[in-house]
């Protein structure tokens, strides 16, 4: 189930807004040259940033990872062509499908599936001398976290929540590795590409929340959640609840992108400023980014858990069930 949803997320993350050739990008080399000529510290940094290719389309930048993506693009362009597209459309499709952050997402997904299947094959009651212990520790910790966040019986959602947590954590950390990019926080000039990934993740999470709400509490109770407590207030309650439900995936996506993308921008800026300032600031900032990357994954999953708990708890209240003592974490 969660693997299917994960694949669904990746499919959603697929074709992002294609970067049109706009005047800013055409002007880029001229700007960089002019900034170098000016020679002030501020413009110097900016010029370096542009020459690193922040405004360029990805297939004109030459890092090692981009060359891999370029190879994939050139391999698949004739295949798309053979599928009946026009040559221009085939090239545009391949350029947008094999963007670095999409390839990065697929690579991470493949690595995670490989690790999971490897550990699954090696599971045994008597532990072997092997490295599966770390994965078992993570799985147990995530299951306990899910139960604490949702309440008793919440560990049945642990596969989905743990998948989200591990994926988002690794996606955030990928931006800290030189040469790789973070699928969550990447932005190319004015195009906030990372929003594609975060919106896909948030949509999957919110669809799962509603699926669980309908499955666990029934359609009647689910609709009763929207109608609200005194039923005759429904003309006010229903629009409020619907707007609230729409705001949830939006806030999840924007929060994740903004935090991770902002952190990456700060690190990028510190890396391209003057050497003496950059080193003492950049190193602790990178260590802090390791912490915040995990924290953002925690926040995303904890909010998803509290949405699930909100629906389930409402169900308990309606039916006069007072055995639970879990406070609702948040109603966002």
């Amino acid at each position: 189930m969660s693997a299917l949803l994960c694949v669904f997320a990746l499919v959603l993350a697929g074709p992002p807004a294609q970067a049109e050739a706009d005047p800013h990008q055409v002007e880029q080399p001229h700007d960089a040259a002019a900034a170098e000529a000016h020679g002030s510290a501020e413009h110097d940094g900016e010029g370096h940033g542009e020459s690193h290719g922040h405004g360029m389309p990805w297939h004109e930048q030459h890092t090692v990872f981009n060359r891999l993506c370029l190879l994939l693009r050139n391999t698949f362009t004739p295949i798309f062509d053979a599928l009946g597209m026009t040559p221009e459309k085939a090239k545009a499709t391949a350029t947008s499908v094999f963007q670095p952050f999409v390839v990065m997402t697929w690579l991470m997904c493949g690595g995670l599936i490989w690790v999971a299947s490897y550990v699954r094959r090696r599971l045994s009651r008597i532990p072997k001398k092997d490295t599966t212990g770390f994965v078992e520790m993570c799985a147990e910790g995530l299951r306990n976290f899910t139960r604490d966040a949702i309440g008793p019986g919440g560990e049945e959602h642990a596969p989905f929540i743990a998948t989200l947590f591990i994926f988002i954590t690794l996606a955030n950390w990928a931006g800290l590795v030189p040469g790789l990019i973070s699928p969550v926080g990447v932005s190319e000039g004015d195009y906030l590409l990372g929003l594609n990934t975060t919106f896909a993740l948030a949509l999957v999470a919110i669809i799962y929340v509603h699926y669980v709400a309908i499955k666990k509490t029934g359609v009647k109770s689910y609709l009763g959640h929207f109608v609200g407590e005194p039923w005759w207030l429904f003309p006010i309650n229903i629009p409020i609840h619907i707007v609230g439900e729409i705001a949830r995936p939006l806030s999840l996506a924007f929060r994740l992108f903004g935090n991770v993308g902002g952190e990456d921008k700060v690190l990028h800026f510190l890396a391209i400023t003057m050497f003496l300032i950059a080193i003492p600031l950049h190193t602790p900032m990178t260590m802090f980014a390791v912490f915040t990357g995990m924290l953002q994954a925690y926040v995303f999953t904890a909010l998803t858990c509290s949405y699930i708990a909100g629906f389930l708890e409402h169900h308990h209240e309606v039916h006069g069930d007072d055995t639970h003592d879990e406070p609702a974490a948040a109603h966002a």
Partner: peptide
């Protein structure tokens, strides 16, 4: 402390999301 800490982190994230909206407007 466990309950309080998790609720604190969630509420800090909710407060912080407003700043993130401002950051998007900034971009």
């Amino acid at each position: 402390s466990g309950d309080i800490r998790s609720n604190l982190i969630i509420s800090l994230a909710l407060i912080e999301s407003i700043v993130i909206y401002a950051l998007l407007v900034f971009f």
